[in-house]
């Protein structure tokens, strides 16, 4: 009796595992195969790609598509703009979130609850897209690089993350520094900042990905300044315009072989994915910590 039950359990186990592993494997492949497909099509013989013959294995490997892309000036400008906003925007955002997050942990702050709520409410309530756009326009932040930076400096969610983290640092550390005559800035610089590195790395990574992927603000704010479009915006334009693409390629004197909109679209897509894929393995732990911390209440 006992043995049959065990036997039954075993076959049940095997069937369960088989189904379980298969379903997860299929979903995982569905998640990564598109990236792989895109990639092999950018490095394979372009004529084969054109005929749709590259599906699983790359053939006739070459890198001329990527080399040719480097000659497209527009794309270079977009890269510069996006890298600039990623570096500057993320840097400012991290410093400000860290400092503001620290300030709101200090209980002696006058009207602390009010100031904290003043910030948090904006996560749940906003005026809407159009009034925001009109405000940006009124401030002169449309068609202006600063339009990418200034509105993103204070991120309420990141302030919450830092606040929660700083609250877990033993308060005695700060108190002893205060007794030694240190002010808030000094305590922040020499105690809070170094000890909060893990959470700051997390928000930096999220901020950087957000800036790199930014598309809507470029679309809405930079209508009159094509030279300030981000890479995602530029990519979106390319994906939707066949004639324009070939014109661009013709202008920059790219080999006839490249006159293939499909390959061009693939290559540009790949170029904008590569930075994310390259940093992803190193950043994964920060991403995961981010969502865990995000689960805490505001």
């Amino acid at each position: 009796m006992a043995t049959t039950r065990q036997e039954k359990g075993k076959t049940g186990d095997i069937v369960f595992n088989l189904i379980n592993y298969t379903v997860f494997t299929i979903f995982t492949i569905a998640c990564i195969y598109p990236f792989y497909y895109l990639f092999i099509n950018t490095i394979s013989e372009n004529s084969l790609v054109q005929r749709g013959l590259i599906t699983f294995i790359p053939r006739g490997i070459h890198l001329t598509n990527y080399v040719a892309l480097a000659e497209v000036n527009e794309l270079g400008t977009s890269f510069l703009v996006t890298v600039a906003r990623t570096v500057i925007g993320t840097g400012l955002m991290v410093v400000v979130s860290a400092f503001a997050g620290y300030l709101v942990t200090r209980r002696e702050m006058q009207h602390r609850t009010f100031w904290y709520r003043f910030l948090i409410i904006t996560m749940y309530f906003n005026a809407g897209l159009i009034p925001w756009y009109l405000t940006m326009s009124m401030l002169g932040l449309t068609n202006n690089f600063l339009g990418y930076i200034i509105p993103t400096i204070v991120a309420p969610f990141n302030v919450i993350l830092v606040k929660t983290y700083v609250e877990s640092i033993p308060v005695e550390l700060e108190e002893s520094a205060f007794i030694d005559g240190a002010g808030y800035l000094k305590v922040f610089r020499y105690i809070i900042w170094p000890l909060s590195k893990p959470i700051l790395a997390t928000i930096a990574v999220f901020g950087a990905v957000g800036h790199w992927n930014s598309f809507m603000d470029s679309l809405i704010l930079m209508q009159g300044a094509p030279h300030l479009q981000t890479v995602q915006h530029r990519l979106f334009n390319y994906l939707n315009q066949n004639t324009n693409l070939e014109a661009i390629m013709g202008r920059s004197g790219i080999v006839q072989d490249m006159l293939n909109t499909k390959v061009i679209k693939y290559t540009i897509s790949m170029v904008t994915i590569i930075p994310i894929l390259m940093v992803y393995p190193y950043m994964q732990k920060y991403f995961e910590r981010g969502i865990m911390l995000g689960a805490v209440k505001g």
Partner: peptide
């Protein structure tokens, strides 16, 4: 006073929040 120092240091950020999150309400 320390309680006021904290507010003073926080004010620039509150001003940014005001401009980009509360000021648009005026656009209604």
């Amino acid at each position: 006073e320390r309680s006021k120092q904290l507010v003073l240091m926080y004010l620039p950020f509150a001003a940014l929040v005001f401009v980009f999150s509360y000021l648009p309400l005026w656009g209604w």
